[in-house]
């Protein structure tokens, strides 16, 4: 357990989760609220934002690799137009985790948005009417009075899904960095895979699997506690 690779990958997974989960949840909620208020273009935007979910992430990772390419990638070309020297996104150990996070966020915003949209449609219209009549004049007042509390169960579900998905990140790492450079993007699942199925150190991999499971169980326990305290209403 004191192995440096393992600690490194645990830390990287935590950082990745700490970035991807909250950002994609907040953005997902924001987009859902904006789309809910949108009229005609609603279906179009919903489709666009959901597109990454329906796309093969391994395939799209290749596209991102091209976009992030330090010399021929369009992102750095764009930055150099603005006179900013672009970093070596996936190739430098201090940026690689953030680059992967961007891909992770890009991929999961749409999914969270659809879940939030479903939650929003389930809120009774009369509650908003009541809020108007009760004097909640600004959209912010109505958000805190009705939307946010009523979305509670949805939010919990979205948090659960987002966190577990972030903890389970594997595909992009395997495709784009192979844990590198210099183990800067080693994440739990990748390390387990590498140790167990490439170096065939089964015992070591099993031990890490146990830790991985333990993390998930703790997460679930926390969520269950929150669920339990939440008052169910009809």
């Amino acid at each position: 357990m004191n192995d440096r690779t393992f600690r490194r990958s645990l830390w990287n997974t935590s950082v990745y989760t700490a970035i991807v989960a909250p950002v994609s949840i907040v953005l997902g909620l924001g987009v859902a609220l904006l789309i809910e208020g949108e009229g005609r273009a609603r279906g179009f935007f919903r489709t666009v934002y959901f597109l990454p979910v329906a796309s093969l992430i391994v395939a799209m990772a290749t596209v991102w690799q091209y976009i992030f390419h330090p010399t021929i990638g369009p992102l750095n070309a764009l930055l150099s137009l603005a006179g900013i020297p672009g970093p070596n996104w996936l190739g430098a150990s201090n940026t690689v985790l953030y680059s992967l996070s961007i891909i992770g966020i890009w991929q999961s915003v749409g999914f969270n948005m659809v879940l939030f949209l479903a939650g929003l449609t389930a809120i009774p219209r009369e509650l908003y009417a009541a809020a108007h009549v009760d004097g909640a004049k600004s959209a912010l007042d109505r958000f805190f009075l009705v939307t946010w509390p009523m979305l509670g169960p949805t939010t919990l579900f979205v948090v659960t899904i987002s966190v577990t998905n972030a903890v389970k990140v594997f595909e992009t790492v395997k495709m784009l960095t192979d844990g590198g450079p210099n183990k800067a993007s080693e994440v739990l699942l990748f390390t387990i895979y590498q140790e167990g199925f490439v170096y065939l150190r089964v015992g070591y991999a099993s031990a890490m699997t146990v830790v991985f499971l333990a993390i998930l169980v703790v997460l679930m326990f926390l969520q269950y506690r929150v669920l339990d305290r939440r008052v169910h209403y009809t």
Binding site: L27, V31, L34, I35, E38, A41, F45, V48, Y49, L51, P52, M60, V63, W64, Y66, I67, P74, W106, V109, G110
Partner: peptide, 16 residues
């Protein structure tokens, strides 16, 4: 705002 976000979502597809 929605259009800007949509553009960011679509950018990889456009480049692809």
């Amino acid at each position: 705002l929605l259009s800007l976000g949509a553009l960011m979502i679509l950018a990889p597809y456009i480049f692809m």
